[in-house]
């Protein structure tokens, strides 16, 4: 059974050592720059010259490419193909086929959008691979995120694998009793209730006890709270963050005034 559910890979690298908030800023900045920048090749350049090298420096190259291959290539491929084929407009017809009319302009636009989406998702994958959720939440709580919200995120990440394991057990059990999870549409709809029912009610009933348990540990105490974990925040981190903000502003300015 998996103890936790996240992309995080524990390694020692300069990227891992960065403050989580710095990495979050970096991920958002890369997304915003790739969407704001008026230059057509920005997204592609960011992917090739920033995100890929950072993944290598962060020593998560293999995991990064595996995740990108699994999550991104099919999606961006689909979007690129569909948009090249179906987005209307454009003068330079590349080819016609049946009712389709594919133009250079629509292919170019499809490529731009797919690259932006690839950049957006891959920069978050990079962020998640190198940042432990608990460290991120501790750091964000220190910066003003309510502790309750951090609690929700961390405890969901821990409950989720338990629930998925339970779901697997229920599916296996119901199947062995002859429940059809394949077959006609009606049969599949009917299968939903016996699968979902026990899972949902079981987990909802536990809520009351779990609420008592965390209250017994002063969860909703109103006084100031402390944190055992401390997350480093170096001058280098701050420099990187301000640099990112500056680049985002610059790309915005370039879009509107350039």
């Amino acid at each position: 059974m998996r103890e936790r559910l996240s992309f995080y890979i524990q390694r020692h690298s300069p990227i891992h050592r960065l403050n989580p908030f710095t990495k979050l800023t970096l991920a958002f900045a890369l997304v915003l720059i790739s969407f704001f920048s008026p230059w057509y090749w920005t997204a592609l350049c960011l992917i090739l010259l920033v995100i890929f090298p950072l993944a290598i420096i962060g020593r998560v190259g293999r995991e990064f490419f595996a995740a990108a291959l699994r999550l991104l290539v099919p999606v961006t491929g689909f979007i690129f193909l569909m948009q090249s084929l179906f987005l209307p407009g454009g003068e330079t017809v590349l080819f016609r086929f049946w009712f389709l009319r594919v133009t250079l302009e629509s292919v170019a636009r499809a490529f731009l959008i797919s690259m932006r989406i690839f950049g957006m998702v891959s920069s978050f994958i990079l962020f998640l691979l190198t940042t432990h959720p608990s460290e991120l939440m501790t750091d964000l709580t220190r910066r003003g995120l309510p502790g309750t919200v951090a609690y929700v995120i961390i405890s969901t990440l821990q409950i989720l694998p338990q629930m998925q394991a339970k779901a697997q057990t229920i599916i296996a059990a119901q199947r062995s009793r002859g429940l059809a999870v394949e077959g006609s549409f009606i049969r599949r709809v009917r299968a939903l209730v016996p699968l979902v029912g026990p899972l949902v009610f079981g987990s909802l009933v536990e809520v009351e006890e779990r609420a008592i348990a965390i209250e017994a540990r002063a969860f909703s105490a109103t006084g100031p709270k402390t944190s055992y974990r401390e997350i480093d925040d170096t001058p280098f981190d701050r420099t990187v963050r301000w640099l990112m903000v500056a680049l985002v502003v610059l790309s915005l300015a370039a879009r509107f005034f350039g």
């Binding site: 599916i171 979902v196 909703s220």
Partner: peptide
């Protein structure tokens, strides 16, 4: 809206979202 029951219910609710979402994919609905 928020008492301790809410804070404990939300993670369970999110897990329900995700797990049922995945079961639905499995059932190809």
């Amino acid at each position: 809206d928020f008492n301790t029951m809410t804070w404990v219910l939300i993670p369970v609710a999110i897990a329900i979202n995700v797990v049922i979402g995945q079961i639905v994919v499995l059932l190809k609905l």
